[in-house]
């Protein structure tokens, strides 16, 4: 189960709409040992691509260092799919390297940059196995 605040949820969705048709990506940090995503950190998609994303490597080092300094972990790792469903692709599964993270996928296939509906789903990806989980959005 992913428990996530409404504000953080809205920030992820807004980022996905804004970057459409390119894939948006980022993390939500939270205290190590907890499972509460609290600090929204949008990342640069170094690929600037509608079909692929990769965190900018220099930015990733900086953000990961901040996590260490603050005793935080990437509780959520999110990205958007802009033409397909919010389900991990084979590429997503093969490259998933954080077994403790909630992998959030947002599909903007229907809404584009607009205000229409988005698909927002969360998964665990461990050793190539994808398990979808429920999402509890709280105020």
């Amino acid at each position: 189960m992913l428990r996530i605040g409404r504000e953080v949820y809205d920030e992820i969705v807004a980022h996905a709409r804004r970057d459409h048709p390119d894939e948006a990506c980022g993390i939500v940090a939270g205290a190590a040992g907890g499972d509460e995503p609290t600090r929204f950190v949008p990342m640069t998609n170094a690929e600037r691509s509608p079909t692929f994303f990769r965190f900018d490597a220099t930015e990733q080092l900086k953000v990961w260092r901040e996590l260490d300094d603050r005793d935080e972990v990437p509780v959520v790792i999110y990205h958007s799919h802009t033409a397909t469903a919010a389900y991990p692709s084979r590429t997503d599964i093969g490259l998933a390297a954080e077994p403790d993270a909630h992998y959030v996928l947002v599909s903007t296939a229907e809404c584009g940059n607009g205000a229409g509906p988005v698909e927002f789903r969360s998964f665990r990806i461990v050793d190539g196995i994808v398990t979808e989980e429920e999402i509890d959005i709280h105020q």
Partner: peptide
């Protein structure tokens, strides 16, 4: 020396 797996993926393989 710092080693970090890239965070990457996407809707199509490449």
């Amino acid at each position: 020396v710092v080693v970090l797996p890239a965070v990457a993926g996407g809707q199509t393989a490449r």
